[in-house]
């Protein structure tokens, strides 16, 4: 045995040296353009860094965070971000689940729904934003025209109205994010054992019971993963709302990302904006941990 192990060792070392050649080309850009900026970003949050300033940047420890604590505008933006993230993720999941279940059935026109469900995924976010601006347009938009035709009044300026802006933007978020979720859930559905489903049907289980006892347990891991990802992606989303409302009217749709972007690149407050980023990461991590722990433990009883 010992001799075998000794004979193997030099070979292993040689292959490991080979492995470095395979790893380095990707590792260097990752370190320089992703890991280092992340750590640097966290450090910046503790400084008074500003863009285009000639004085040296100073370490101010927790001052940015203290300021943030009293920055009501930021917390309002944060609240909007949470409303947006949950308001988009939940309907996104439910609608995608419904569509995935339908697409898993043997229906005509399934190919069309499949194709249409993919398109929003392929579109640039900016184009999605532009497109929905056309839909919501007070005069030339299809939404007001349809409402007028139905006799429900019209003349709403959806994206400029204080009460309608956030819901209108959320609808766009749901539309844009549905495809990934649908595709992931559909793939999960196709992994559920068909025989089990049929056996349950033969035993007289109704559609709802079949879903709860056969489909859902098989689908749960995929559903959890995609919902967690959606929650993060939505909370950090930028382009859609930037194009739709640019945070307006009166800050009603100013997501945290938009807020931090303005702070950093319009007002040049790099340190303060980095602190916002840190707070966003912290809160998202906590929420996500709570969500995953809650879901995982909740599943055992079901």
């Amino acid at each position: 045995m010992a001799s075998v192990a000794q004979a193997e060792r030099p070979v292993r070392r040689a292959t490991d040296r080979g492995a470095w050649f395979l790893v380095l080309p990707a590792l260097i850009p990752i370190l320089v353009l992703s890991v280092a900026p992340l750590l640097y970003g966290i450090l910046l949050a503790f400084t008074d860094a500003q863009s285009g300033r000639t004085q040296a940047t100073q370490w101010i420890s927790g001052l940015n965070f203290q300021d943030l604590l009293h920055d009501t505008l930021f917390w309002e933006s944060f609240r909007i971000g949470l409303v947006w993230a949950v308001g988009v993720t939940v309907p996104q999941f439910l609608l995608a689940l419904g569509l995935a279940l339908l697409l898993n059935e043997d229906l005509k026109l399934r190919w069309l729904a499949r194709a249409l469900a993919i398109i929003p995924w392929a579109m640039p976010e900016v184009v999605v934003g532009v497109m929905w601006r056309l839909v919501y347009n007070p005069d030339a938009g299809v939404l007001n025209e349809t409402l007028r035709d139905l006799g429900l009044g019209g003349g709403h300026d959806w994206l400029a109205g204080l009460a309608t802006a956030l819901p209108a933007v959320v609808v766009v978020g749901v539309w844009a994010g549905m495809p990934q979720t649908t595709v992931a859930l559909l793939a999960g559905l196709q992994n559920t054992p068909r025989e089990l489903h049929e056996a349950a049907a033969v035993d007289g289980a109704g559609a709802w019971r079949r879903f709860r006892t056969v489909t859902w347990p098989a689908l749960r891991p995929v559903a959890l993963a995609i919902t967690a990802l959606n929650l993060i992606w939505n909370f950090n989303s930028f382009a859609l709302v930037y194009v739709l409302t640019n945070g307006g009217p009166g800050g009603r749709t100013r997501l945290p990302m938009l807020f931090a972007y303005e702070e950093a690149f319009r007002y040049g407050q790099f340190g303060y904006a980095a602190a916002m980023g840190c707070v966003m990461v912290a809160v998202v991590s906590v929420l996500l941990a709570l969500f995953l722990v809650g879901r995982l433990s909740g599943g055992d009883e079901a």
Binding site: Y40, G41, W233, N236, M257, A260, A264, F270, G277, V281
Partner: peptide, 17 residues
């Protein structure tokens, strides 16, 4: 982890780098 980080936190240092 790279999926979870908001782009703001990356973009400012990236801009400086």
């Amino acid at each position: 982890v790279s999926q979870a980080f908001p782009l703001v936190l990356v973009i400012i240092p990236l801009f400086l780098v």
